[in-house]
């Protein structure tokens, strides 16, 4: 359930109604910043948000995203090492 997609806030369009233009891969749509308007709206320009049914529901945390990817990179490297070891072992067996 609940299709949500990342988009970047590019401009505030209606301060009073907390509306802003968001860009998703070059597609623009006006969204409400109401759920993420904890401070001045202008601070959100440039931020990546998670958009659901026309609302910016969360500001995406770049550090958390990087941490997730970093952990995966470690796993990927470990996997490559494992595969190389397996290949090495197989090569030895084949000899």
């Amino acid at each position: 359930m609940c299709l949500g997609i990342p988009g970047q806030i590019v401009a505030i369009t209606d301060e009073a109604r907390q509306m802003a233009m968001a860009d998703v891969s070059g597609v623009r749509r006006e969204v409400s910043l109401a759920p993420v308007a904890l401070g001045p709206l202008a601070d959100l320009v440039g931020a990546w948000v998670l958009i659901h049914v026309g609302f910016a529901m969360a500001v995406i945390d770049a550090e958390e995203a990087a941490a997730t990817l970093e952990a995966l990179r470690g796993l990927g490297e470990a996997q490559e090492t494992l595969e190389q070891m397996a290949e090495g072992a197989k090569a030895l067996e084949d000899q």
């Binding site: 299709l3 997609i5 998703v24 891969s25 070059g26 597609v27 749509r29 958009i51």
Partner: peptide
């Protein structure tokens, strides 16, 4: 696929 087409598809499912 153009990024914009992907974008429209992501937004509208």
């Amino acid at each position: 696929l153009r990024p914009e087409v992907k974008g429209v598809c992501e937004i509208l499912g």
